[in-house]
Nucleic acid binder design. Sequence first.
DNA 1: AAAAAAAATAGGAAAAATCCTGTTTTTGCA
DNA 2: TGCAAAAACAGGATTTTTCCTATTTTTTTT
Lengths: 212, 212
Amino acid sequence: MNYSVVIVDDHQLLSQALGSLVNEFENFSVLYTCRNGTELIEKFKAPKNIPDVVLMDVNMPIMNGIETTQHLHQNFSQVHVLALSIEEDEATILKMLRSGAKGYLLKDVRKGELKQALTEVIQKGYYHTNTVAKILVDSLSEKQSPETLLKERELEFIKHACTEMTYKEIADVMCLSPKTIEGYRNSIFEKLNLRNRTGLVIYAIKHKLFIP
Amino acid sequence: MNYSVVIVDDHQLLSQALGSLVNEFENFSVLYTCRNGTELIEKFKAPKNIPDVVLMDVNMPIMNGIETTQHLHQNFSQVHVLALSIEEDEATILKMLRSGAKGYLLKDVRKGELKQALTEVIQKGYYHTNTVAKILVDSLSEKQSPETLLKERELEFIKHACTEMTYKEIADVMCLSPKTIEGYRNSIFEKLNLRNRTGLVIYAIKHKLFIP
DNA sequence: AAAAAAAATAGGAAAAATCCTGTTTTTGCA
DNA sequence: TGCAAAAACAGGATTTTTCCTATTTTTTTT
């Protein structure tokens, strides 16, 4: 039995190189490659283009891996998605798994592990490396993500705080009193244990609440 | 004639996938792959391990592409280095080329272009895509990099400004008067057209003067 | 509808940051 | 060695930020 694989990655060289690698494996062959989620979904309109496994990059322009995986999970649940990324931060990995990915491979895995992952995801329905498994376990116990700790309006404020606007100007664009903005800031400082706005900006960028 | 290629990249999957791809080309074959610059230099101690071309990733732990390329340029100038990266910011590309790379490929190039690059770098000694060529031309004309615009001591101050320290505290660790620190800040604000410290932090992170 | 919880708002004070206009000290160099 | 430029430093005013405590308004729950 030969299983079909589709590769979705905006880096074409990586796509093609990965394709060569997968084609070397027995039992697996590449059906085609795509540059982003939109292209993939377009392809899926023809049933012959629906593969057994999708190797999905997380960071892509136009339609990223998380959105794309969610869509596949809802509409083509028989397709196994393996996430593939250089991102190894907890938040990204968790988002991807919650979206329905059956495994998460870091881009520094070895050839053998890729083959293993493809085989297991077909046979068992999932594949997780030790690294990812550990992150999963950790995420259950200790700290929560900024998104759950902070409120919607606070997250919005943080994005504005990562600009040159004064708090008064932020209050204007958010249509709130400057004193309310101060309230947001104080509550955030408290929750995140920060001393000042500079600390907040660094925190926001580290945790991808704001992308510079 | 068969030319030898070495791949240096900390992402093992990419290395191996790239290896498969290069081995598909006529006239080229992969000698071995490395995970970082230190490994490569260790390998080079044996003359049989010295290839015709090195495909070098820019971002690597331990010893990055820039340092490694400099070392090769000084000690093994007959080896052609082709940089390979997802980074497409001017500063990185220029640094890599100044270090002696004979070409700079973005990771979203196509298979055909990689082959073209390998062939040309052997034949002509260099290969540049239109994108990179444009960046080179642009860099000659207009704006200069932050590193040349700002002074050594100012760059050091910027790193401290990207923390929760007050200016007084920064003055202490830099062993200067708070008023001197203010002088630095004012001169930087002027040169970079910034309004406040938040703007400076964002600028520093965007231009990689500070890595969060 | 009343009670409780959450969100928004205020006053006021102290600290820090910003922005002027200068002076002193150090350094490079002819 | 002396002069000019650069670097370091200062006083003082204004604005912004930070940090208290407390009140009003809105929303949710019972």
